[in-house]
Write a protein that binds this DNA or RNA. Sequence first.
DNA 1: AATTTTAGTTGACAAAGTCAACTTTATTAA
DNA 2: TTAATAAAGTTGACTTTGTCAACTAAAATT
Lengths: 151, 151
Amino acid sequence: MSLEKKIVQIRSFNRFYTDVLGLVNNNLLDSEYSLAEARILYEIFTARTVSASDIISKLSMDKGYLSRILKKFERSGLIIRKASKEDARVYLLSLTDQGKSVFDTLNHASYQQISRLVSNMAEQQLDELVKYMHEITRLLQKANKHITGSH
Amino acid sequence: MSLEKKIVQIRSFNRFYTDVLGLVNNNLLDSEYSLAEARILYEIFTARTVSASDIISKLSMDKGYLSRILKKFERSGLIIRKASKEDARVYLLSLTDQGKSVFDTLNHASYQQISRLVSNMAEQQLDELVKYMHEITRLLQKANKHITGSH
DNA sequence: AATTTTAGTTGACAAAGTCAACTTTATTAA
DNA sequence: TTAATAAAGTTGACTTTGTCAACTAAAATT
């Protein structure tokens, strides 16, 4: 297969997977949280404690936009912000119990969503799917070290 | 591996690939056309002649939103709309020469973008990447016949 | 010590997307 | 065959999402 055709194939996959992600994410959006908000909660949850600028570089988002979302999260009691001791410009973010609870709900909904997506697959097919996803991640990450790693 | 872990793996891939698509699409957005607009031009180009409702079901987008984009395309000379003979409610869309030219430009930019993404890969690795993408598409489409097929 | 950079906030704005009401034509069912 | 219903597309009003630049305060650099 020519390089041209391979690239056409990759673009075809990208369109397909955009649809898959759209499907998966839209059902998440039935909650009162946007995709960006869910992703931010995920980052704070997994890191356990991060600064806004960590999130900005991880998710490549606008700092003004993030600042407002974090303010909303704080007002509604999902996160607390603690001034860093090492750097007075920095606030360290962490989830409150309520924040963890909201995260759990979103996390579970997202889990169920994927669960449904693969519910018709035999075990072996699912294994293959996971393997291929892992391989794609590995190949693209190896060739593009700059792509945000480690999920 | 447990089912739970497999689903966690899939979600991890989804986050990763969201980043990949974000990267790829953002550079497209340096043009004066949005992702949605580019995708619409693509649909009209490949189908050669479609109705608005075809695009709506293919891309699952709001018909009001699409209507406005199409109006803009018509005003700026990218498409023409011809009343259908079979159904007077329907307008058939097709690209003008200028529309094809804009499409070509976007298409080429998108091609280059993917080209860069895989530029560091050896031929064999690229072959594997394409193969895995194809397999993922096949597996997911087989298990979810309703996912918008055929790209 | 002066300059530059970084973290975060805020205001103003633009782009993207949603929703419902409406018109016109087609389809379905009584 | 007409009455009700549905589908295609348009439009207005609106919300959400995201961007940009100016700003303050603290840290890093020269």
